[in-house]
Design a protein around this nucleic acid. Structure first.
Lengths: 146, 146
DNA sequence: TACTTTCTCGATCGAATTAGTCGGGATTGA
DNA sequence: TCAATCCCGACTAATTCGATCGAGAAAGTA
């Protein structure tokens, strides 16, 4: 899977939080229900996102999670990076995409192609913000799975 | 990993066969050595590629594998498709990229993005032929892993 | 015929990654 | 004090992936 479930969950959690931006904290079980994410797993995910500073939390009765940054300033790539500690490069069997690890030092027929793919993917994720996704969500015209 | 080792091996095996196109069959251990692929694993891979009709084999003393189709007519995407029985779509947690499986029938904020990524990847793999890769290999200017 | 080489096929194993769970603790507000 | 909620690390389960193996079938060679 190009994007792991975990990362997709993370994205959807942030997306959900963005909906309620400016309205006080959202409880984890609300996010879990709304986005159909296993609650206990979501805990793991949110605690990671919290560490990255994109999300804030509060405990107790009035507790929950809050999105700190502006949805316009958060890209999908950001989220994946926070989750993974970097949106990893394609792992070329030969190259491992690191000059130092490449057994073909200097010449590899496939590398330029891996690069292209890499860049193409990154381009989409870098250019899509949470705000963009919310807009899609609000517009009627868009249809899923077709 | 976006492209599994197995698929990368497949690509490199075909690439290797393409080099000797028109020169009689290449033995499996020659391919394995040249491309540094575990021999027994390569058996599995080639037998699959054979079933897809891109490769031909002959047994016995003078045996080996031969590429049937023209390297100009084989794209990288083809190879991955043969291996996987389709270059699968991104597996969206919610959609699974099948209209019928999508719980959000009709509305999913993320789908257009998955589509874009999908298309971007496919575009590269669809447009790169084995012939292209051979050319990269022959040109001096290209450098690997940087 | 007997023998060697090479491909053929299915089963299986092991390691790594990923998904998901759990128990118990710390805060916070009522 | 109590209930609700987040917090944390360890743990387990499931799946995928990479790789190996044994035995057999074709093809040429002597």
């Amino acid at each position: 899977m190009l994007v792991t479930q975990k990362n997709q969950y993370a994205l959807r959690a942030i997306f959900e939080l963005a909906k309620y931006k400016g309205q006080g904290p959202v409880k984890i079980y609300e996010i879990a229900e709304a986005q159909n994410i296993p609650l206990r797993f979501l805990e793991v995910i949110l605690s990671r996102l919290k560490r990255s500073g994109i999300v804030e939390s509060k405990r107790g009765y009035t507790g929950g999670y809050k999105l700190i940054r502006d949805p316009m300033e958060i890209t999908v790539a950001d989220i994946f990076r926070f989750m993974d500690e970097s949106l990893g490069p394609i792992e070329c069997v030969a190259c491992v995409s690191e000059k130092s690890n490449c057994p073909y030092q200097g010449q590899c027929a496939f590398f330029p192609m891996w690069q292209k793919v890499q860049d193409a993917i990154r381009d989409v994720f870098d250019k899509t913000t949470i705000h963009d996704l919310l807009e899609v969500d609000n517009s009627e015209g868009v249809h899923c799975c077709m």
